[in-house]
Amino acid sequence: MTTVSTPARAPEPTNERPGSGPRRRTAGARVAALTGHWAVRLFLVVIALFWLMPTAGLLGSSVRDRADISTSGWWQIFGFSSSFPWIIDPGRLTLDNYDALLTNAQITDSVVTTVLITVPATVLVVLVAALAGYAFAWLDFPGRDYWFLAVVGLLVVPVQVALVPVAKLFNALGIFETTPGVVLFHTAFGLPFGIFLLRSFFAEIPRELLEAARLDGAGEIRLFTRVVLPLGGPAIASLGIFQFLWVWNDMLVALIFADAANPPITVALQQQVRQFGNNIDVLAPGAFLSMLIPLAVFFAFQKQFVSGVMAGAVK
C-alpha cells in the first residue's frame, strides 16, 4: 500500500480522499513505494493468470480434437508459428465436441431439466419469501419476533440434515425423483435466507408510503403487490440471482431427488465423471456449457450478486 498518487490518476472515491491529511514523504520513500507498487502489480498479474488458468484449461481442452486431448495438454493449442509461439493456432482448434454435445439428446435434455428446476425454484422462493418477509416486517400477529428468530435459526441448517427425512416424505407423497420434488426442496432451503433478506429490505420502506396507500383504501394484497414488491426490487433481484445460481449449480439435491432418467446437467455430467479420462471430449465442453449461464448471470448482475453474497454471509 502506498499513498502515491499522480495527477493523471483519478482519485478512487472509496479509497482516497484528496487532502485527507498531509503527505509527509521524502523522495526516497516515494521511490521505494513506487518499486513496491511495481512488484505488487506484477504479483497481481501473476495471480490473475494463475486464477484464470484452470478455466482456460477447461475451455482449451473443450475445443481440441479427441485424439489430441488424449495425447497432450491443452496448452498445445498455442504455437501459431515459431515466431509467435504464444499465439493460439486456430488450426489446432475444433468445435466438433460442441457439435456432438449439442446433438447429444442426453445433454440437451438435461439442460432443459435444469431450467425446469431452476426457474420455478427461483420464482417460488422470491414469492413465498416476499409474502413472509412482508408479514414479518409490517403485519401484526402474536409471537412475531419469536417466529422470525426461528426462521433466522434455520439459516445455517445444512441441507444434508434433510436428505433422508425428505426422501421418505416425498416417497410417501409420490414426488420422490420428480422435478416438482426438487423444486420444493430448493424452495424450502432458500426460504430462511430469502425471508431474512427481504424482511430487512421491506422494513426500510418508509412507513408514510404504506400508510398513504392504506388511506387510499388499499387492502393488504394491494399494498403488497403495488407498493412492497415494486419497492423491494433490488433485494428481490439479489435474492433471485443468488437462488438462481444456487439451484442451477446444485448437484447433491438433484442427485437424490431428481429423476435419474432425466437428470439436470450437473448430475448428467457427474455420471460421466466416473469414466474420467477417455471422455474429456464430452466432459470439458459439457462443464463449460454448464458454466455459461451462471457466468452470464454473474457478469450481467455483479452488483446484485455481490450484495446478495454480502447479506448471505453466515448462511
Partner: peptide
C-alpha cells in the same frame, strides 16, 4: 464462485 462445484471439479 459463480460456477458449480461440479464444473470446478471437472476443471
Amino acid at each position: 464462485m459463480a460456477v458449480s462445484m461440479l464444473a470446478a471439479g471437472i476443471t
